[in-house]
Write a protein that binds this DNA or RNA. Structure first.
Length: 450
RNA sequence: GUGGGUGUAGCUCAAUGGCAGAGCACCUGAUUGUGGUUCAGGACGUUGUGGGUUCAAAUCCCAUCAUCCACCCCA
C-alpha cells in the first residue's frame, strides 16, 4: 500500500486543546463560578455560536468590529452569519426577542466560548470562555452593587490573591471631558489615553494627549481630576467639589455613592474595590458604572470586565431596558491559579478513584464484576484493558502515571477465597478484604487520602 | 495591522563554519502477583520549509511559515 501523506497535526493560531488534566482544572473554576451565579439567583441561558451579522455589527465600536469572525457557509446565499464576540449582545437580542416569555427583572448567566480575531499573546487567545451574569430591567444601583458582590464572592471562593475591583462611571468621564473643554470628537482619544495611566504614568498620558492635539489647559484640568485618589468615598467628595456642578458628572457621583452604600450592606469591604477615574474600558455600549478587576501579581490583564449598558437593548426593540452585568474571563483566572498553584488538592489529574487490575484471562470476569460492584456504590472505577497483556507491574505503573489513588488486585488466590486486595499508592498501604466489604475498604482508604 | 526574539529527538535545551548531543519522557530486562527509587540495555533527527554563499552550513545570507514578546485593543 502506498505511503499515506500525513497531515501535520496542529491548530489555527490562537486556538487551544485542553487535555484531561487541564479540563479538570477548568471544570473546577467553571463549577465554582456557576455555583456563585446560582447562589445569587441567576439562571442559565444558552445562545448559538453564530449570530446574524446584523445582530453583532454596530454594537462594539469600530476597532472591536474588525475582530469579529465571519462564518459563512460556502453555498449559503441567505443569512449572513458571524461568530459571537461576547455574550452581552446575544443577551440583548434574546431579551428583545422573547420579552413575553421572560419575567423581569431578568437575571441570567451564560458560560460559553467567544471568538475574537486578535493577535494571541500571554493571557490572550482567539477562543476563550466568558462567564457572564447580568440583571436586565433594573436601573437602581442595588443591581450594580450586586454584580460587584457576585464578582467578589467568586474571587473569594477561588482564593485569588488580592483582587482589586476597579470602579468608574462613564458619566464621570463624560463630565470630566465637558469640564476640561474637550470637544466630543476627541473624547474617544481622550479616554484611550487615560486608560493607559497604569502603564505609562501621568507624564505619558499628558504627553499623548498633547500629541493628539488637545489643548494644554484642557489636558492639565483633566489630569488633575483623573488623579484624584483617596480612601473610599473621600475621592468622590473631592471630585464633587470640582465638577459637581456639571449635571452628568453629578449623576455619576451620586450613582457611585449609592453603589458604595449597597456594597457595604452586601458585605463587600472597601478594601475589595476602589474608585479609579483612570479606568475606562473600550466597548462603546457602556453608559454608567463600569468595572474591571486586576490581580497585581501576576498581572495578565484584567480578569473581569463589566458595567451598565442601558441603551443596548434599545437597538433591538422600541424601548431599551436598563441592564448591568459582568463578564469573568476564566482563561486568565486559570493562568493565574496555575502560576500560583492555587488549585485545591482535590482537583486531581484524573476522575478515577480506583483502578481494577486484571490478573489473567481466568480472572477477567471477576475483575469486571468487582468494577461493577464499585460503580454501584458510586465509586469511580476504571477496569484495566490491555488486549491480553496482564502484567501487574504495568497496571500499577499506569495507575501511578495517571494519578489514580487506589488499585484493586484480585488474582487466583483472592478469587479462590472471595477476597480482594486494595492498595493505596500514596503510602503503599494495602488491605486484604472480603469482596462483600470492598466498598467500605475503598471508602476508608479514600478518606485518609485527602 | 506595526516592531522585536526564537525555531535542533515526544518535552526542555546544548553544539558560533568541520562526525548532531545531553537531561527528562518512552520501550526491554534485573523483578513472570505490585507503581514511584536504583542499575543495565534499547529506540528516537530531512536541525520548521524553500533557495543562496562555501571544499564543507544547525551555524552565514535571502525568502517563507510557525511560535513567543511588545504596541494597538482586550477576558
Amino acid at each position: 500500500m502506498a505511503q499515506q501523506i500525513k497531515i501535520k497535526p496542529r491548530l489555527a493560531k490562537g486556538f487551544r486543546d485542553f487535555l484531561p488534566s487541564e479540563m479538570l482544572k477548568r471544570q473546577y473554576v467553571i463549577d465554582t463560578i456557576e455555583g456563585v451565579f446560582q447562589l445569587f439567583g441567576y439562571e442559565p441561558l444558552q445562545t448559538p455560536v453564530l449570530e446574524l451579522r446584523d445582530t453583532l455589527f454596530g454594537k462594539y465600536g469600530e476597532d472591536a468590529e474588525q475582530l469579529i469572525y465571519s462564518a459563512q457557509h460556502g453555498r449559503s446565499k441567505s443569512d449572513e452569519v458571524a461568530m459571537r464576540y461576547d455574550l452581552t449582545v446575544p443577551l440583548s437580542r434574546v431579551v428583545a426577542q422573547y420579552e413575553n416569555d421572560i419575567s423581569f427583572p431578568f437575571r441570567r448567566y451564560q458560560i460559553s466560548p467567544v471568538w475574537r480575531g486578535e493577535r494571541p499573546q500571554r493571557g490572550r487567545y482567539r477562543e476563550f470562555f466568558q462567564c457572564d451574569a447580568d440583571i436586565v430591567g433594573v436601573s437602581g444601583m442595588e443591581a450594580d452593587a450586586e454584580i460587584i458582590s457576585v464578582m467578589n464572592t467568586v474571587y473569594q471562593r477561588l482564593n485569588l490573591p488580592q483582587p482589586i475591583i476597579k470602579i468608574n462611571n462613564r458619566k464621570l468621564l463624560t463630565g470630566m471631558g465637558v469640564f476640561s473643554d474637550v470637544i466630543d470628537s476627541q473624547l474617544p482619544d481622550l479616554y484611550r489615553s487615560i486608560d493607559k495611566f497604569d502603564k505609562i504614568g501621568a507624564e505619558g498620558v499628558e504627553k499623548e494627549l498633547i500629541e493628539r492635539g488637545i489643548p494644554g489647559y484642557a489636558v492639565k484640568r483633566m489630569m488633575d481630576l483623573v488623579q484624584i485618589r483617596d480612601e473610599g468615598n473621600l475621592n468622590l467628595n473631592l471630585l464633587e467639589r470640582q465638577i459637581g456642578h456639571i449635571e452628568v458628572a453629578n449623576e455619576g457621583i451620586d450613582e457611585l455613592r449609592s453603589m458604595a452604600m449597597y456594597l457595604d450592606a452586601l458585605g463587600v469591604p472597601q478594601s475589595a474595590y476602589e474608585f479609579d477615574f483612570t479606568m475606562v474600558r473600550g466597548l462603546s455600549y457602556y453608559t454608567g458604572p463600569i468595572f474591571e478587576t486586576i490581580i497585581q501579581e501576576p498581572n495578565l490583564g484584567s480578569i473581569t470586565g463589566g458595567g451598565r449598558y442601558d441603551n443596548l437593548i434599545g437597538l433591538f426593540r422600541r424601548e431599551s431596558l436598563p441592564t448591568v452585568g459582568t463578564s469573568l474571563g476564566i482563561e486568565r483566572i486559570i493562568d493565574i491559579m496555575t502560576e500560583l498553584d492555587l488549585f485545591p488538592s482535590h482537583v486531581a489529574d484524573t476522575v478515577v478513584d480506583i483502578l481494577v487490575t486484571v490478573f489473567d484471562d481466568e480472572t477477567q470476569i471477576a475483575s469486571s464484576r468487582l468494577a461493577s460492584q464499585l460503580r454501584k456504590a458510586n465509586i469511580r472505577a476504571e477496569l484495566y484493558m490491555s488486549d491480553g497483556k496482564f502484567k501487574l507491574g504495568k497496571q500499577f505503573a499506569y495507575a501511578d502515571k495517571k494519578g489514580i489513588p487506589l488499585v484493586a488486585t484480585l488474582g487466583p488466590d483472592e478469587v479462590a477465597n472471595g477476597r480482594v486486595s486494595i492498595k493505596r499508592l500514596s503510602d503503599a498501604k494495602e488491605v486484604d478484604v472480603l469482596q462483600a466489604d470492598v466498598v467500605d475498604a475503598v471508602v476508608g482508604l479514600m478518606q485518609i487520602e485527602f
